[in-house]
């Protein structure tokens, strides 16, 4: 235990295992508009469904720790956003709308027609809100986890990737050191930056679809000056027209999307409940997996009792 360093948790104690060695449930591949997309399902198929969406350049593995924790009471579904992870891109240019429609396509493909409890991390949070605006009947509640859409500030790394041509070139040149830097930026506690995680990130980054979709989406997300205000304003106005019970959470030490975006989220969605996790970076669902699951389950239980927001 050391004090005075800028990184690392303030309290002693072993961190949760960085990756779950083998998350419960089944990993399958479904076909959506000709694209092969991975989906993991766990829990009782009859239980209320939860759909988990990851962030830009990431994969369904970002939700592995929550399969274990949520599947006792829910049917838990995590999927790659089309073109990310180890999944194909959909035909046509990669857009936010396409990612949202792809997620709904996965639900169709596994026969899940009920409204889902939608949880999205980072870009996945913006995609979750977009699913609500495009297919409101498919969404029961929203859980936004360090979500994109609430402010222009974003890590300079992502802003550079949004520059036409430059971003695409950079994305084809990710080496082990770059992959490790990204993981270190995501987590506060370096114990989560395992060799296993870095290797998997490299495997994901090496796929041609992933680099191309990443560059397209980074460009749509924002410019070198930050996240574009236009799509944010339009999206939040649409979300406000379709209120759902909403939980917005943030990691206090997030350096990808800063924590004050949570205040903007609460201004945009005034009925939302919120929480901030201490000693935590951009992915509370991994870095504070138990606390996240406790809170999410409490929220889902309360939402089931009082469905009218």
């Amino acid at each position: 235990m050391t004090t005075g360093t800028s990184r690392g948790p303030l309290t002693a104690g072993a961190p949760a295992p960085p990756t779950h060695p083998s998350p419960p449930g089944d990993l399958a591949t479904v076909t959506v508009r000709g694209a092969r997309i991975r989906v993991r399902t766990s829990g009782d198929p009859a239980a209320p469904p939860v759909l988990l969406l990851h962030g830009i350049g990431r994969s369904l593995e970002d939700w592995d720790a929550q399969h274990e924790r949520l599947s006792g009471t829910h049917r838990v579904i995590s999927t790659d956003l089309a073109g990310f992870g180890l999944s194909d891109r959909l035909p046509g240019p990669a857009t936010f709308e396409q990612l949202a429609d792809g997620a709904v396509g996965v639900l169709d493909a596994i026969g899940e027609r009920r409204p889902v409890h939608l949880m999205g991390n980072s870009l996945g949070g913006a995609v979750a809100m977009l699913v609500l605006t495009r297919a409101p009947e498919r969404v029961a509640t929203l859980t936004l986890v360090d979500a994109a859409g609430f402010g222009s500030e974003v890590t300079v790394a992502l802003r550079v990737l949004g520059i036409p041509f430059v971003g695409a070139r950079l994305l084809t040149r990710i080496d082990r050191a770059a992959a490790r830097r990204t993981e270190r930026a995501i987590f506060l506690d370096d114990a989560f930056v395992t060799e296993e995680r870095v290797s998997f990130a490299l495997e994901v980054a090496a796929r041609a679809d992933q680099a191309a979709v990443f560059a397209d989406i980074a460009r749509e997300l924002g410019t070198v000056r930050g996240v574009r205000p236009q799509w944010r304003a339009a999206l939040l106005a649409e979300v406000a027209r379709r209120p759902r019970p909403t939980l917005a959470v943030w990691g206090e030490r997030d350096i990808i999307l800063p924590g004050h975006h949570l205040r903007a989220a609460l201004a945009a969605i005034p009925h939302a409940r919120s929480h901030v996790f201490a000693r935590c970076g951009h992915m509370p669902q991994i870095e504070r997996a138990d606390a996240f699951a406790d809170l999410a389950l409490t929220f889902l239980r309360d939402a089931a009792r009082e469905p009218n927001v």
Binding site: R273, S274, H275, A291, D294, L295, T298
Partner: peptide, 15 residues
């Protein structure tokens, strides 16, 4: 005081 506390508990179930 109770009114303030219950407002906060409603908004922030994790606190």
């Amino acid at each position: 005081l109770d009114a303030v506390a219950s407002t906060i508990r409603g908004r922030h179930p994790g606190l």
